[in-house]
Design a protein around this nucleic acid. Sequence first.
RNA 1: GCGCCCGUAGCUCAAUCGGAUAGAGCAUCGGCCUUCUAAGCCGACGGUUGCAGGUUCGAGUCCUGCCGGGCGCGCCA
Length: 586
Amino acid sequence: MKEQIRKLLQTAVNRLVEDGTLPPDTHVDIQVERARDRGHGDFAANTALMLARPARRNPRELAEALVAALPSSDTVQRTEIAGPGFINFFLRAEAAYAAVREALDQGEAYGRGDIGRGKRLLVEFVSANPTGPLHVGHGRGAAFGGALCNLLAEAGYQVHREYYVNDAGRQMDILATSVWLRYLEVSGQQLRFPDNGYRGDYVRHIARSLYEREHDALRRQAAAVFGDIPADGSQGGDKEAHIDALVARAKELLGRSNYRRVFDLALNTVLEDIRDDLAGFGVEYDEWFSELSLTESGAVELALERLQRAGHLFERDGATWFRSTEFGDEKDRVVRRENGAITYFASDIAYHLNKLERGFDAIIDVWGADHHGYVPRVKAALSACGEDAARLDVRLVQFAILYRGSERLQMSTRSGQFVTLRELREEVGSDAARFFYVMRKPEQHLDFDLELAKSQSADNPVYYIQYAHARICSVMRQLGDKGLRYDAANGLEHLTMLEERHELDLVNAIGQYRELVENAAAAREPHQVAHYLRDLANAVHTYYNAHQFLVDDATLRDARLCLVLAARQVIRNGLRLLGVRAPEAM
RNA sequence: GCGCCCGUAGCUCAAUCGGAUAGAGCAUCGGCCUUCUAAGCCGACGGUUGCAGGUUCGAGUCCUGCCGGGCGCGCCA
């Protein structure tokens, strides 16, 4: 529709150029947008305002000239010139009703678009370290990423959902060691648990299942484990040195293959929990990509060689550095430490190169906002390798700040004091949680009040939308109870009977859904869907209260049912994008 | 100190590429259930868009400088 109007205006501009009203070199970006209020018609264009300066003409005069030059159209009923020179377009009502028919005909495909043109997109999101259960902070990344993927797929992109598993770092060693220490406790050893170890109950659970599998096979004397280990933080020492020494000791006492078994059990148990948790949250992945596989396949070394050949690496203080400052980063970065170990950054370079090599047209990373400082160096690395850094789009998601009423909760994975995503899902329900998370634009801090989300009250906006859906379902049940029949074809033939203001508002809202999906996908902003659905639900409730649907006049009744069923379809489709259920009854 | 993000109604947030009179929910106050679910509807109240300049036909939106908040600034991940 928008496109049609744009074409009409382009024709008018061309005509004015031909007759000399506009200079021959006129070039204008024709912007057509939905009018913000009814008085301004259906669509508005600011073309005359934009042409005023280059043409050195009064914008209102230009607007009149443009309108006079507009070709006739069977969808535009009339135009108006308003304000400083806006051209407002009023469409024929019949054009608007077409959306109702399309929504019913196309069903769950209604709203699918093609701005993606089948381009392949890789979206990486959540990617929390598998060192413990997901907490409510990760929940936002999951809800946002999941909705974004659905939205992009709906807009015609081919979306690949990926979780990057950090299974290669020091934190994983600390987890494995924590599990082993708890296992020693299970096996009857007395020991002092390190400050920096992972303290959550899940560590004890894994330790118990480790004990069930291995019995005393991995048991070592506490004295041997802790002998000559430097003092812990709370003992006046350095907690980092303490834990690192314990990790080294665990590897030494257990041997490579035993240590590996502890490590793998810890990793697989936590990963399985995360996978299950996300699935329960309605988030599924196409691929779980292992960081370890990059090191083991030699991809990291290859990436470093690539940088080396391009002349962007140098040695200093025994370490290998990437000269990222040449590509806009604020300081150079270490890729290989003095002790020979590669850094997380090095494997991340390899990972991003790998993503591009897999042939995706663009890649999107969803990161917590605390990683924002990381963006320039990853882009720098891609540029240094001769890749187009613009193919990487990093979306930063601010953390959720958790409240219980007015009390702000502090969270820390290490201390074991956190609210897990699983707890949140159990208390609040996935629907409310997912909706709550994506309601706000991601760069905005999110205040997440558990009491409010748990309250099951009207304060929860998701119920408002779900209720609109359930109400329509209920009307259809009533129809059956009253022994009435719904004739869709008859209704569709008589949509023009729907002339009440509430009906026109609803028709209009349904017709905006396609554009909404396009715009939200292009901007990569799922929250637009949430806001749209709120407005759509409002139109449904308002209509419901103002008019009876199941009237005696069968034809009017059929037309009204067509309208609300179309609305129900759009609510369903929109909620599906957000990963929220559309209940038949509430 | 430097960098990035944010600042909109009492509270939580919207506002399409810079567009017309800045909108919702909650809270407060007043109405609406004999009618398809009141998790609903209608109305009222509520604003110097943090402050000061600038750019232009037009600024919540762009630029500069302040103020306030968050995050980042490791041979951690």
